[in-house]
Design a protein around this nucleic acid. Sequence first.
DNA 1: TGTGTATGCGCC
DNA 2: AGGGCGCATACACA
Length: 543
Amino acid sequence: MSRISLSRLPGDRALVTDGGSELTLGIADLPAYVRERDADGPRWVWDDTARWYPTLLAAGVRVERCHDLRLGHHLLRRAPAVDRELLVGEQSAYWDRLGPVVPSDPVLFSADDTAEHLRADLEDARQLAAVAASPEAGRLGLLLAAESSGALVAAEMTYAGVPWRVDIHERLLTDLLGPRPPRGARPSGLEALAGEVRTAFDAPGLNPDSRPELLAALRRAGLEVSDTRASSLRVLDHPGIVPLLRYKQLAHLFSTNGWVWIDQWVSGGRFRPSYQPAGSTTGRWSSNGGGALSFPAQVRPAAVADEGWMLVVADVAQLEPRVLAGMSGDTALAQAARGADLYQGMVDAGAVASRKDAKLGLLGAMYGATSGESGRMVAGLTRRYPAAFGLVEEAARAGERGQVVRTLLGRGAPGLGEAWDTDPDDGPADPDSQARYRRAYGRFTRNFVVQGTGAEWALCWIAELRNRLWRLGSDGPLDARPHLVFFLHDEVVVHTPAGLADAVVEQATAAAATASGLLFRDLTIDFPLNTSVVTSYADAGKH
DNA sequence: TGTGTATGCGCC
DNA sequence: AGGGCGCATACACA
């Protein structure tokens, strides 16, 4: 059991210790304290994990448990099962307004000096009371613990980084684009392709980066297109299309994951994206630096484990359909989920003719497809899986009626008026657009319940995996332990000493079972993982 | 010159 | 008239 303490020193400094490490921080009133008598032992309670933890990690302090008050406050304030009045009190308006700490500014002093005088203990007491008074105290408590664990994971992953071979990445860029061009210039490979496009369309001055110019050139060549996106161009029959598509693909690589990206996001052989837990309203993480949400296949060859280490890549097969089966208690769908491929399970049960149809129907139900092949499949499958399809249907109806919906553990969706940025000056809309807006909100609430509960499952999974990985390497030195380096919705990457790779796979699988039990109790839902032990991320088996 | 929006791409 | 995101760029507008 770790011993953590936090104490004021003279001269606006504070001493923090956790385990054997200690650190002196220069800070005024601390928006953090330690909850001593927590069920599992002492727990850090602080305003924002992203404000504190990077400093602690840099000083060699690993935190076992925390409660992130900012995340907790925003979560509880929107939770339908919580009495919001219990969250109101001294300084609470400040917590209402508190935004995330921006990663480019990882300092303990905020421009807004209110932050330094926040009373963490006051806010913590309100949150504990609000949870205790809720009829869903158990689930909310689990959600808060998972959310805070996620915040620890996020900070640890940014600190550790994805092992990144700049030499491989640069060779890849040079092979495809030519040598690095001067700032503002096109690489030679792109310039050559642009030349081919100009010739093919007989447009000598054409700038392929300009949509209007490109559109005009395409039309002059007799092609009927209304936009310039790749999917629209792909179906056209013209000798200029092939080099144009190639140009667009490589131009995107150059601007999104080119040399500038390396300069900005890779340091010390590590790619360090920044994560924002609960950054999206559904509870999924978002990212505000490095582009962690789109880790394109094109550059994955550069993610290579250190010498003597391996990457364990694990993703959940059909996470959201399985979550839907669990939260709706649909025993027929749960039955289909027994096995590695839920869609195939539906085929085997005779519910649907092909795997493709199963996928179309389920995704259509979760996204609110109304027409086309997908919409037709939904109708048929509703009879077969009434509980599962009924749940998303009811969430959509509730949204259209203007009611709020919630995830399984109690995260509330934003209301009808606040789901998207809307201009308050727009005035009263006509009935048609109002109805359109309500249907759009219904599609949002329909997806919210599944995507949000999926995010909760994933949080529990990585929180549990984090703990298991820590124990796994506990007899070795600190820097020889397997650790999470990447997480994206339903997928994790663990960087591990090669000798522990198989054990990591086991722990990832066990953690998935634990997460399932936490969310769905006695209703057994399988969450099989696709796992790969690889040297490079690019070699992970995907489908 | 700067700012906001639209487009297109990438990921789940 | 199928959900959630981030990012880079072009373009329109101030």
